[in-house]
Structures are given as structure tokens and as C-alpha cells.
């Protein structure tokens, strides 16, 4: 798992690649911490290279969405692979996290 974050004109673009699972969910959480600390979050996360997430990864996405919503910011996940999308769909996470 690897996460990169870039900021340009107030808009934050991040990308996550590889697998997020029980072995590295904590590392993923630390990786997205800077996104949780943005004052006015306007975040786009490219999930095109995200191969896999278990419920441990969902937990981190949920914490991130809660932090962004608490600041009335916006977050969108893009290019999600169908199998990963299915995990978000089954758990109803697609209803609370914007995926395009």
C-alpha cells in the first residue's frame, strides 16, 4: 500500500495504490492523517490503483469522511475498480462517501 498527496490551488489530490488490509490499515490511517487536518477540505482521491480493501480499510475511509464532513468539506473517490466498488456498495459506504 502506498499513498501520495499533492496540493494545487487549494485542491488536494491524493492517490492510493496496492492493498489495504489488516496488516497495513494503521499505516494507511497515518498516511491519510494530513487529509484530516486540512482546514477547508476539497479532496479527490484516485483509487484506480487500489487493488483491494477489507473492512479495515473501510474503517479508515469512514474516519476520513467523518473528518471532512465535520469541516463541511468535500471528498470524492475516483476511478475505483469494480471489485473494490462492490465492497463499498455492499456495506452501503457508497451512500455516505462520494464515488465517481
Amino acid at each position: 500500500m502506498n499513498i501520495t498527496i499533492n496540493e494545487e490551488d487549494g485542491k488536494v489530490r491524493a492517490s492510493v495504490c496496492g492493498r489495504v488490509d489488516t496488516t497495513n490499515a494503521e499505516q494507511f490511517l497515518q498516511g491519510v492523517k494530513p487529509l484530516m487536518e486540512i482546514e477547508k477540505p476539497d479532496i479527490e482521491i484516485d483509487c484506480g490503483e487500489l487493488e483491494y480493501t477489507s473492512s479495515q480499510g473501510l474503517r479508515v475511509f469512514l474516519m476520513l469522511q467523518k473528518a471532512v464532513s465535520a469541516k463541511k468539506g468535500s471528498m470524492v473517490l475516483t476511478r475505483m475498480r469494480p471489485q473494490v466498488k462492490e465492497v463499498f456498495d455492499i456495506t452501503g459506504f457508497s451512500n455516505i462517501i462520494r464515488i465517481v
Binding site: S54, S55, L58, L62, I90, G92, N95, I96
Partner: peptide, 23 residues
């Protein structure tokens, strides 16, 4: 877990086995 719950009420517990039941 209630998969239709709003964001504020979401809990992460129980999702793993629920996913397993569904998949």
C-alpha cells in the same frame, strides 16, 4: 450492521462478517 445508516451513526464493527455473508 445498518448499511443505510447516515454517516454520523456509522460503526465499523460487524462489517467484516457481513461482507463475508454477502460475498
Amino acid at each position: 450492521p445498518d448499511v443505510n445508516a447516515p454517516l454520523e451513526e456509522r460503526q465499523i464493527g460487524g462489517l467484516g462478517i457481513f461482507l463475508c455473508k454477502q460475498m
